[in-house]
Design a binder for these strands. Structure first.
Length: 257
DNA sequence: AGAACCGCCTGCTTGC
DNA sequence: TGCAAGCAGGCGGTTC
């Protein structure tokens, strides 16, 4: 699933590929996306990430906002032959960016609104104190809080489990029960894990591929995600899997308290 | 108000 | 082998 590192990877690649050039036209191949405002002859100023949303800024002040949800991908093709499950595209004179999404959850919006500043992104100027003021009192578990996009931007199911494992905190701990020291560990490990994953061009555990169709290599860094039933490499306990709000969480009962 | 739950979607895995 | 049921989960909307 595309989370912060995967979306960041796409934004960087898109910037190189389409920054400063003109979108000739856009097209939809799925009635769900037919309502998206059509774009013609529009210069791309740049591409940036807001949480898990890809924001493509155009010179006329409009932005294209793409959210990949679960199985969405963006794929650059030199020609214009449509890949399987293509749902929407942006055409350029040297190629096409396709939105590919078998499950049709991905969304595209075109709007003329200035970019909101996201302050709760661990990989950019993150404000610890305001975060703790707003979130530390919550009566829900820490895994759910990490995945709440209004609390922290960009963390999904894979990285939430990995961050809590590295921080040594049980995912079912009540958010309000965490000490300052535990929070600091979560922030620190979160930053480290997300930055490493960006450097690795994302985690290709199921179907993630980058703009050029290549797999990332961060799946080799995973310590608990989808590793239930195997031994923890640190303490030897068996990695467990539980459901939290209908989502799978993976953790080590030996290393996390 | 805030937490929990539902529905959207379809390829893949599992079980008989 | 083949088919049906179950599973995967981000997020907006609804319900508790």
């Amino acid at each position: 699933m595309p989370e912060l590192p995967e979306v960041e990877t796409l934004c960087r690649q898109l910037n190189k590929k389409i920054g400063g050039i003109k979108i000739l036209a856009t097209a939809s191949y799925d009635e769900k996306l037919d309502g998206i405002k059509k774009i013609r002859e529009a210069l791309v100023i740049g591409v940036c990430r807001q949480g898990k949303t890809i924001r493509i800024n155009l010179v006329d002040g409009h932005s294209i906002l793409i959210h990949l949800r679960m199985t969405g991908r963006l794929l650059w093709r030199q020609g214009s032959d449509r890949p399987r499950y293509a749902r929407w595209s942006m055409m350029f004179d040297n190629g096409t960016v396709f939105l590919v999404d078998p499950r049709r959850f991905a969304t595209v919006k075109v709007e003329k609104a200035p970019a909101g500043i996201i302050r709760n992104d661990l990989t950019r100027g993150f404000d610890k104190n305001s975060f703790l003021q707003q979130q530390a009192i919550r009566k829900t578990n820490i895994k759910t809080t990490l995945m709440d996009q209004k609390a922290l931007a960009g963390i999904g199911n894979i990285y939430a489990s990995e961050i809590l494992y590295r921080a040594g905190v049980l995912p079912m701990r009540l958010t309000s029960s965490l000490s300052r020291k535990e929070w600091e560990k979560i922030f620190h490990c979160g930053r480290t894990i997300l930055k490493k994953a960006v450097a690795n061009r994302g985690t290709s555990i199921s179907d993630w591929h980058d703009l050029h169709g290549r797999k990332g290599v961060n799946q080799h860094e995973l310590k608990v995600y989808a590793r239930h039933g195997t031994m923890c490499s640190v303490c030897g306990e068996i990695i467990r899997r539980v459901k939290q709000g209908s989502r799978s969480t993976f953790y080590c009962p030996g290393c996390q308290i």
